[in-house]
């Protein structure tokens, strides 16, 4: 068998798989987004032009969902970066049982979202939850309070995904040349100065990659928010999309919403990547 044949043998199945399961549905749903198609009926899809996009973008409920999602992304990703990077800094030194500690800290991100959701639901329970007991908060209603519920979900997400940021940060920190710290020590540089002038700039590119991944994931979050609370103040855009597509069967409209979400995620990711390239150039 020729090299070309072997190459094709490996590549063609993947390309076919990609076309059938990704590209084709993507284009097909783009077509549906311009129709009034409802999958629950046998009625044909009628072309409605940009009506679905117009309706969605002028719907105050949808904008509320986007605002909630943005708030969630900012709180959740910021928390993950602070906690993840902080823990990585602590682990980036000689401490006993470092390997075991690192492995244990990685456990949350290995659990399934549904399990984490149910687990935190119990922790937050005002009647028997351990969080209120430990913090002495009495019967504080984390998930029933419309102003608190979103933060409660973000806290669970921070717990779950900080280890991911920690892992990438550890890789970045271990790559910082030791002689830079030695030079800073000789120059009697303060800890803060060393952190902002050496550590952070050198770890920034890999930290940016962690932020890109976590932002994309947080923007699409569904499981945790769906399991933990059903407040209107926690209805992130993916939950609205799910309800529109699979409970209300507004197929055409939900395809349009999915494209709006896709465009937003792409736009945010592009901004990050541009910033990442700038950081790398420094």
């Amino acid at each position: 068998m020729s090299d070309l044949a072997i190459r094709n043998l490996f590549i063609i199945p993947t390309i076919v798989f990609l076309i059938v399961f990704n590209i084709f549905p993507l284009l097909y749903s783009l077509g549906y987004s311009f129709t009034d198609f409802r999958a629950s009926t046998n009625a044909p899809a009628n072309f409605v032009g940009l009506d679905n996009y117009r309706t969605l973008l002028s719907d105050p409920f949808i904008w509320r969902n986007f605002t909630i999602t943005a708030k969630y992304v900012i709180v959740s990703v910021t928390g993950q970066v602070i906690v993840g990077f902080g823990v990585a800094m602590l682990l980036n030194r000689e401490i006993p049982f470092k390997g075991l500690l690192t492995t244990l800290l990685l456990l949350p991100m290995m659990l399934s979202m549904a399990v984490v959701g149910l687990f935190w639901k119990m922790l937050y329970d005002p009647n028997f939850g351990v969080i209120n007991y430990a913090l002495g908060l009495g019967k504080f209603e984390w998930l029933a309070d419309p102003d608190m519920a979103l933060y409660a979900i973000a806290i669970a997400d921070i717990w779950m995904w900080s280890p991911f940021v920690m892992l990438l940060s550890l890789a970045g920190l271990s790559a910082v040349p030791k002689h830079l710290y030695e030079a800073a020590a000789i120059d009697r540089a303060s800890g803060l100065y060393t952190f902002f002038r050496i550590t952070l700039p050198l770890v920034a590119p890999i930290l940016m990659i962690a932020i890109i991944f976590r932002t994309m994931e947080a923007f699409k979050t569904f499981d945790l928010a769906y399991i933990l609370a059903s407040q209107p103040t926690t209805e992130v855009i993916s939950i609205r999309l799910y309800k529109m597509a699979f409970q209300e069967w507004q197929t055409g409209m939900s395809c349009a919403l999915a494209y709006i979400v896709l465009i937003m995620v792409l736009a945010i990711t592009n901004i990050y990547i541009k910033y990442l390239n700038k950081v790398k150039e420094r």
Binding site: A144, S230, Q231, Q247, E248, Q250
Partner: peptide, 23 residues
């Protein structure tokens, strides 16, 4: 009616914040 799910969603969206959140 066939669009009952939309009507149900709208009821949930309106009633829930009032009943649970006092809005």
């Amino acid at each position: 009616v066939p669009e009952y799910a939309e009507l149900l969603g709208q009821l949930n969206n309106r009633l829930y914040p009032h009943i649970v959140g006092g809005e």
